[in-house]
Amino acid sequence: MATTPVPVLDGDSCPKLQMEKRVKNVFVTQPEDPRGRKKEKMCVPATTETSSKLLEAGVKALKRTLIARKQAELHELDVQLALKTQDFRSCMEALASRRSELETQQRQSKEEEMKFEKFVAEKEEKRQRALKQCEATLEQNILKQRRIEDLTEQLTKLETRRHILKQRTDKNKIYEDYLMKTLDRLPSLPRHNSSESLAVPIIRRHETLSVTHQGLLQRLRRMEAEVERQWRQLQNMKQQHSIATLMSSKELSELHSELESLREKNRQVEVNLLMKRGASREKVEEVGKLLMAVNNLAQECYIPEFGPLEGMSVLTMMDMVKEFVLDKADTERRLRRLDSCSTATLTDKPWRKSPKSIGSKTQIKSSSKASKISDSSN
């Protein structure tokens, strides 16, 4: 709202009252004034102007005074509005700085949370690697222990077989001695007929059977080793399957807990969203009620100088209501002041009744016109 400077009332602009000296009037019934003894030559000025001119001059002076007071009040309102605007801007700046600080803190907290999650993930990965390494070491130890047990069992079997073969050799020693003695007692044969002796085919048959027996024993050992290897592989597969089952059940439980936490967060977010929607609905209702109240006030306090009411904004309506209220208050104050002045005048000088009433009406009309002019200029 534009402010206008307060006009300075010049003493020369007002019509000068022409006063004349005349002797003080004293009623006969009144006692003589003792002050008149000391100052017998005291003169009371008397105006030569008529009462209508005096009333017009008074109305003009009162009009200027009211205009100046109105402009001073408007200036004070503008100063208060500027102070309120400055306070509002300072509050908005403080809120913006607070919002930036909160955003910075939120960003820092998110970064710290991401770092912590990364740290937890690294620790979990290290733990998984250590667990896998421990499991691999345990499997190797189990395999080595089984290998030691197998070798010990094979050594025991070989010792038993060696003992059995030694007993069998000792048992068949008498047959070897008998054959050697028989060969010693037989007549000597020619060298070319030595291969045709009866003992050579038997010995060769024995050697063949012994070689076949050794081959069968080696084949049996290989088959036993293969069966043992397959059995160990089956045990390893069973152990790996059990470990994988445990890990899968653990991951499944973790995912289930995460699912429950996400469901709880979703429920909380839904509750917060419903609460915010209810608050926003209440705010919209309050704003609608406030706009309806402003429209009703604008209709009650309509001033034609502000233009048509249909396309008027809310701030313009508030300004119009403020101007209407201020105008009504100012009119009421002036009416009360004029009523008091007229009452005092009627009690003191009854012969000035009609000009005073005419002046009060003229003053009311002129003040209303001045207020409309000041509102249109603002």
Rank of each mutant, 00 (worst) to 15 (best):
R221N: 05
Q240A: 10
D10G: 10
S195K: 12
E300G: 04
T85Q: 05
L274M: 07
E176M: 11
E264H: 05
L291A: 13
R146V: 02
K289P: 01
K110G: 04
V227L: 11
L198N: 10
E196L: 15
L259S: 15
A72V: 06
T152F: 06
A329L: 13
T137S: 13
P7S: 01
E251Q: 09
V269K: 04
S13I: 02
D78E: 14
E282K: 00
T29A: 08
K157W: 02
I142A: 13
I373H: 12
A61N: 06
H206A: 07
P187G: 04
K171H: 14
C43A: 11
S376A: 13
K21N: 11
H192F: 12
G307K: 00
D150H: 10
L309I: 05
F306A: 01
E101Y: 10
A57S: 05
L131M: 13
N172R: 05
S357C: 03
K283Q: 06
M92E: 15
T85R: 06
A225I: 11
T212L: 10
P45H: 02
S13Q: 08
K110S: 12
Q140R: 11
E270T: 10
R64V: 13
L209T: 03
L102P: 00
R191E: 15
F116W: 11
S100K: 01
I164P: 02
E76P: 00
A136P: 00
T212N: 13
L95K: 11
E20M: 04
E207D: 08
E159Y: 01
E264F: 13
L138C: 04
V23P: 04
N295S: 08
L259H: 11
M92A: 14
L262F: 09
